[in-house]
Amino acid sequence: MSYSVGQVSAFAGVTVRTLHHYDKAGLLSPSGRSHAGYRLYNEADLVRLQQILFYRELGFSLDQIAAIFKDPQANALEQLRARQRQLSEEIARLQRLAEVAQRAIQVQQTGVALTPQERFEVFGEITFDLSYATEAELKWADSDGQREAMARAAAHTKQDWRHLMNEAAAWRAELLAAFDEQEPGEGERAMDLAEEHRLHISRWFTSCPPDMHQRIADDFTADPRAFALVVPPSQQRPGLAAYLRQAIHANAARHTGGPGGIEEDG
């Protein structure tokens, strides 16, 4: 039995244009023609179309499908296994994104509600970049510290946020003064400021041991969005992120008993 392009398009759920494209690509050429010269598909053609649609549903490109059809025994199993691995990785990534979204919903539901005026009053120029927040959530997804920080942030009241942001602003002023006065990044004043920052994180969000603090500091120089959470762009100076990173690493060495250092606090 033979079927016209229109009939195949209707019951296969693809457009006539798609069928013509498959024909042009050499993937599916109708086996027959009507007396009037119209393309006609037979049962074997429909089986092949079903295979094409199956591979397309799995995300294979037309070139990949063509390679499989050239040598099904050699290519199909290998290609399917590779695609299975890719799909599994994509499923895992989407699952993590779903968890991020769920945590964001929880924060919105349980966190303090602020009007735009109150938000500016509390946070000032500090802004939270959603794209960075999502990436950070994925990066630290398996961290107990990240989960604790999210939970504690959600529990903060407006008064808590005002207190901690005022504390952060006072610390930031001291950091800018030390930098502008050209205090060395590995000097005692800079290291003391780094220690204040570490304790601020522990006090308001999650326990922040020196090694964790170093990883946070590395983000300051690697991603401007991370540093903007600490120092808003209007207050930044060239080299300031690297300066703070140097101070934090020096302070971590001091805590771990490095040269001239002190022992880690318990």
Rank of each mutant, 00 (worst) to 15 (best):
K139P: 05
R237G: 04
V230S: 09
A154F: 06
N166L: 13
A82W: 10
R254Y: 09
M212W: 11
M150D: 11
E174R: 13
E90S: 10
N251V: 02
Q106V: 07
F227E: 05
E89R: 15
G13F: 08
H156C: 07
F11A: 11
Q102G: 12
S9K: 08
L58T: 01
V16Q: 14
P233R: 05
A136Q: 15
S131H: 10
S131T: 13
A101R: 11
K24F: 03
H35P: 13
A253I: 05
E195K: 15
A170N: 08
P233M: 03
L53Q: 15
E135T: 03
Y55N: 05
A190Y: 02
Q102M: 14
A222C: 04
Y55V: 00
S4V: 01
L114I: 00
G32V: 00
H21I: 05
S143A: 12
S131F: 08
P72I: 02
M165N: 05
T110M: 00
A250I: 06
F179R: 03
L199M: 12
A253M: 13
Q50F: 09
E125R: 07
G187D: 03
N166D: 14
V14C: 08
W204H: 14
H156S: 03
A194F: 02
A247N: 14
E125N: 10
L240C: 06
L193I: 02
S202P: 07
S143R: 10
L46T: 12
F128M: 14
R56K: 14
N75F: 13
L27I: 08
P232V: 00
Q159P: 02
G266C: 06
K70A: 15
D218A: 10
A241K: 07
F205I: 03
G260E: 01
A155S: 10
A36L: 04
S202N: 08
G124L: 00
A228L: 12
I105D: 02
Y3H: 14
A177Y: 07
L164G: 03
Q117A: 11
L130A: 12
P224L: 13
R93M: 11
Q84N: 07
G257I: 11
L97S: 15
V122F: 00
Q50V: 06
A217W: 00
F205L: 07
E264K: 12
E78Y: 11
K158N: 01
Q235D: 14
M165K: 03
H255E: 15
A226V: 08
A194I: 01
R189Q: 13
I201V: 15
R83S: 12
I65Y: 09
V14K: 06
D142C: 02
E89P: 10
Q79V: 09
A82T: 11
L27F: 08
I201S: 00
L46H: 07
S61G: 07
R96Y: 02
D45C: 02
E137A: 14
K139Q: 15
F60T: 09
T134A: 14
H255Q: 14
T134L: 11
L77P: 10
C208M: 09
V14T: 09
A98Y: 02
R162W: 03
L193Y: 04
R119K: 11
A178T: 01
G13L: 04
L87W: 14
Y55L: 10
A194V: 00
Y22N: 10
A173P: 05
A217S: 02
T221W: 08
R189W: 03
G187F: 05
M150P: 04
L19T: 01
F60D: 08
Q109W: 00
A92I: 03
A170H: 06
T127E: 14
A44D: 13
